[in-house]
Measured scan of single mutants.
Amino acid sequence: MSIQHFRVALIPFFAAFCLPVFAHPETLVKVKDAEDQLGARVGYIELDLNSGKILESFRPEERFPMMSTFKVLLCGAVLSRVDAGQEQLGRRIHYSQNDLVEYSPVTEKHLTDGMTVRELCSAAITMSDNTAANLLLTTIGGPKELTAFLHNMGDHVTRLDRWEPELNEAIPNDERDTTMPAAMATTLRKLLTGELLTLASRQQLIDWMEADKVAGPLLRSALPAGWFIADKSGAGERGSRGIIAALGPDGKPSRIVVIYTTGSQATMDERNRQIAEIGASLIKHW
């Protein structure tokens, strides 16, 4: 067993022997301040990774656009098919120029040779490549099948209805392509620590998230040296922004954090800054 596999296998073990965790309302004060600064709703939840206990939450059962955070769930569904012998990570998928959609920095470079399922998941999570996500959605049967996968996990809230990039439209009061912070946090925890996926697939999923290259201005910008984070960000229309993450000190994750916002007129930089400040408060009061 590799060191990384050992780390993920012992996530519940280490967490069980940690000192009790206590909620700190100071972080919620910052979440509410972010709402004021952005002029928009902000949803927040913080779960203990081992027990699933909610440590703090704000608007945990209000719907927010998922945006690209759905790509972690998508690759979880792909990995479940791999575990069941219905898919192979090494299978190569070929596609054409007509398949390319807006923001496809990886797939646009491989029109000639195609990409493997493993490479597509890596591109979808680490670079948020939209064509990679659409190609992977095709392998599982489309958005409705991802929703069905989530329902089978016990998540009857999260739903995907459309493809990239239309799913980022974020129309107010439109339930399409949305989740709730509580539902997303619980589902992410199941994917990373539950028995739904094999140990190898859980490790692969967290490795992809740990290698995320496009979430630097968010929670990662607030992390002290030595902290662990595996995350996936999302951005959408109407001032929408979000991030889902597993993080913790001492090089291992111990909490799940989900943050979503929508309806702001603020710039992307300002949305990023507010999420980073929430992260800084979380870490300060850990």
Rank of each mutant, 00 (worst) to 15 (best):
M1I: 07
Q4T: 09
A9S: 15
L10D: 03
I11Q: 05
P12Q: 10
F13E: 02
C18K: 02
L19S: 15
V21N: 06
P25H: 13
K32L: 11
A34I: 10
E35T: 03
D36Q: 04
G43C: 04
L47V: 14
L47M: 12
L49K: 04
N50K: 13
N50E: 14
G52E: 07
S57F: 09
R59H: 09
E62F: 07
R63L: 09
F64T: 01
P65M: 02
M67R: 01
M67I: 07
S68I: 00
V72E: 01
L73H: 07
L73C: 08
C75Y: 00
C75P: 01
G76N: 01
V78P: 00
L79Q: 03
S80W: 12
R81V: 06
G85T: 07
Q86V: 14
Q86R: 12
E87L: 11
L89A: 07
R91Y: 06
H94A: 11
Y95S: 02
Q97H: 14
Q97N: 10
Q97D: 13
N98I: 14
D99C: 06
D99E: 14
Y103N: 06
S104I: 02
T107K: 01
K109L: 13
H110D: 05
H110Q: 09
G114Q: 04
G114S: 05
M115N: 03
M115C: 07
R118T: 14
A124N: 04
A124R: 00
S128C: 00
T131K: 02
T131R: 02
I140D: 02
L146Q: 04
H151C: 10
G154P: 04
G154R: 07
D155Q: 02
H156L: 11
T158F: 07
D161R: 03
P165Q: 06
P165L: 08
P165A: 07
E166D: 14
N168F: 03
N168A: 08
A170D: 08
P172E: 13
A182Y: 14
A183P: 07
A185E: 00
T186V: 14
L196F: 13
L199K: 11
S201W: 03
R202N: 06
R202G: 07
I206C: 13
D207F: 10
D207T: 13
E210F: 10
D212N: 07
D212H: 05
G216P: 05
P217M: 14
L219I: 14
R220M: 03
P224Y: 04
F228M: 10
D231Y: 04
D231K: 04
G234I: 00
A235W: 01
A235R: 02
G236E: 02
E237G: 15
R238T: 10
G239H: 04
S240D: 05
R241W: 02
G248N: 03
D250H: 14
D250L: 12
K252C: 12
S254E: 13
V257E: 02
V258N: 02
Y260I: 08
A266K: 13
M268P: 07
M268S: 08
E270S: 12
R271T: 11
N272I: 03
E277Q: 10
L282H: 02
K284I: 11
H285F: 15
H285G: 09
W286H: 04
